[in-house]
């Protein structure tokens, strides 16, 4: 198994990073979009996160966005050309054009048990830099629930090089710690860390 190396794979990020999240209602894509924005705030970056609003139904495809920037963010349009696409549910690949508008060097991170090469062949994906992480399995084994958002954030932090893993761990302990018992918080920390370690590149 080949894991993603942060030094080699970390994206050379421009001043503005735009992330598009694809998931299904109930998988926590919106929460993940907001979590990354809030971690960015802790790293003294400018941030914005918003879902593409529609009827909110469990299981229906949903889209959310995160913007992170060194400069104040004034644009409120939807993200057209994401540098990073995070797919929380691999069953969306045949239904939603997840790479729409993403430039050829965009990072595409998919929650999947398959290694990137196999997933690429299966999904007939052209171009872009594909990464996979078994986020649902990690979530079940660490948190005890099949909500893949926290491990997806861990993998995204690794492949994007946006912030150090410790900054997200600190955030989880501080913010989740306000709302959840320690067992849940540490489960999320474990999920985040495992996904960070296990995400695979091509």
């Amino acid at each position: 198994m080949k894991t993603a190396s942060p030094s080699k794979d970390a994206t050379q990020l421009p001043a503005l990073t735009e992330i598009r999240w694809h998931g299904r209602g109930g998988q926590g894509a919106v929460t993940a979009a907001k979590m990354v924005a809030e971690v960015a705030l802790g790293q003294h970056k400018h941030f914005q996160a918003f879902p593409e609003y529609g009827p909110e139904r469990s299981g229906a495809p949903i889209v959310a966005f995160t913007r992170i920037s060194d400069d104040p963010i004034q644009i409120f349009s939807g993200v057209e050309h994401p540098q990073i696409v995070a797919v929380l549910d691999p069953t969306l690949l045949g239904i939603v054009d997840v790479t729409k508008g993403a430039p050829d060097d965009a990072v595409v991170l998919v929650n999947s048990d398959l290694p990137p090469a196999k997933l690429r062949a299966k999904a007939k994906m052209k171009g872009r830099r594909l990464y996979t992480v078994a986020a649902t399995r990690i979530a079940v084994e660490t948190i005890g629930r099949s909500i893949p958002n926290t491990p997806m954030v861990g993998a995204l932090v690794r492949v994007s090089g946006l912030f150090p893993l410790e900054s997200v761990v600190e955030f989880l302990r501080a913010e989740f710690g306000k709302k959840f018992p320690p067992k849940v918080v540490e489960g999320n920390v474990a999920a985040l860390t495992r996904a960070y370690q296990e995400v695979q590149g091509e």
């Binding site: 907001k34 924005a37 400018h46 941030f47 914005q48 996160a49 918003f50 609003y53 409120f76």
Partner: peptide
């Protein structure tokens, strides 16, 4: 305030 665009978005 613009509905959803601002009301539902996370910002500073």
């Amino acid at each position: 305030t613009d509905g959803f665009i601002v009301s539902g978005a996370i910002g500073p």
